[in-house]
Write a protein that binds this DNA or RNA. Structure first.
Lengths: 200, 200
DNA sequence: AGCGGATATGACAAGGGTGTCATAAAAAAC
DNA sequence: GTTTTTTATGACACCCTTGTCATATCCGCT
């Protein structure tokens, strides 16, 4: 949690600092991010930073919190998913929304991606917390299986991990320069394969 | 390539340096590895290192070369895979060999794993070189498709990427503490799902 | 105007990293 | 034994990082 002083700052300055932090964390993994660079970009003296935040971890958690808020706001605009829709329809229909999110918040998206490349204890902890707070995917698969849509011997949690892993790989391709159209095509193909692979 | 001086070194010292380098690269990604730590572990003065190697990149490439040699030696012991065997049988039957390799060369394996967490240009280049030199998996899938074992509309290169990505994820689980038996079970299930997903 | 708390600031300490270089020592050649 | 070549070595210069702290400045209140 940032210190009180930070929230008492004039709006403009606070935004400047936030922006610089986001850019730093989108350019470097948490472990490689530098407060020196960040304060320079924000145009504040180094000492001030420690007046606003306890340390780098504190800043990171604050940024993650803001990203979470924004994500919730955007996703809620897409309305609650059809309660009866299965995993595949949901995954497919959510694709545009996911891409819209990624392309309208490229920096936020990059921060999320870079988390997967960081093996520090701190980031592991953060990722675990985020994962535990988003069990939608897993529940949806379990529901589909209960309905008999998915073969009973399939481990749905494994499928969820599979999907998330593959998504991460595609995300990497995306940052490697593969164009959006191609990625969308690949996601479709992957879903198709998994679909064929687990359906009853 | 190390400098001539390095190869003229007494066997014992050379091995000591190599061992320290392997341990350093298995403990830290290339970008985070420190020559300071390495020379300390090897018990040689800092200046000597630069007498043997041009820089960290030079050392890394040398280690990778040695690992490659060792891998080739071990894999060739398992004999050439049946030329008629398809992707799934091969992948399944190769599982023990892969695990044996990983468990008998834990440090080498860790180095390979850590490469995937490094996004420096240098490591990207190294990974690309390694990937391009091992097209077995891709060719095998194409052959299966030509035989009509795999549906014609499937993009086999995508399947190869899929498999490699998933393997990487499981590797991560492995280092996260998931026991060998569980991983093997998961690999089997994943192969099963992909199999069902792409077979004709 | 004067006081006091909040804020701003850059120097500082202490640690890390890399690569170079002059010199010392050892080895080899003569 | 002297000269030449090879190797060994740690100090050095320069870069970076984080977190602290004494001091300066600002701002609101009396």
């Amino acid at each position: 949690m940032p210190k009180e002083t930070f929230f008492r700052l004039p709006e403009e300055k606070r935004r400047r600092i936030y922006q610089a932090a986001v850019e730093e964390f989108a350019a470097y993994r948490f472990s490689d991010a530098s407060i020196n660079r960040m304060v320079k970009a924000a145009g504040i003296p180094r000492g001030s930073f420690y007046q606003y935040f306890k340390n780098k971890e504190d800043l990171y958690l604050y940024v993650m919190g803001e990203i979470g808020k924004e994500k919730l706001k955007v996703l809620s605009r897409y309305g609650p998913a059809d309660d009866q829709a299965g995993f595949f329809e949901t995954a497919k229909s959510a694709l545009p929304a996911v891409f819209d999110w990624a392309e309208s918040h490229p920096l936020y998206n990059r921060i999320g991606f870079l988390m997967a490349l960081d093996d520090s204890d701190f980031i592991r902890m953060v990722m675990k917390k985020i994962n535990d707070s988003q069990p939608f995917l897993r529940q949806m698969l379990k529901k589909d299986q209960a309905k008999g849509l998915i073969r009973p011997e399939i481990d749905t949690d494994l499928v969820a991990d599979m999907y998330l892993n593959l998504a991460l790989g595609l995300c990497r391709d995306y940052y490697g320069g593969t164009p959006r159209e191609e990625i969308i095509g690949k996601v479709g193909s992957l879903l198709e394969i998994i679909c064929h692979g687990i359906l009853a």
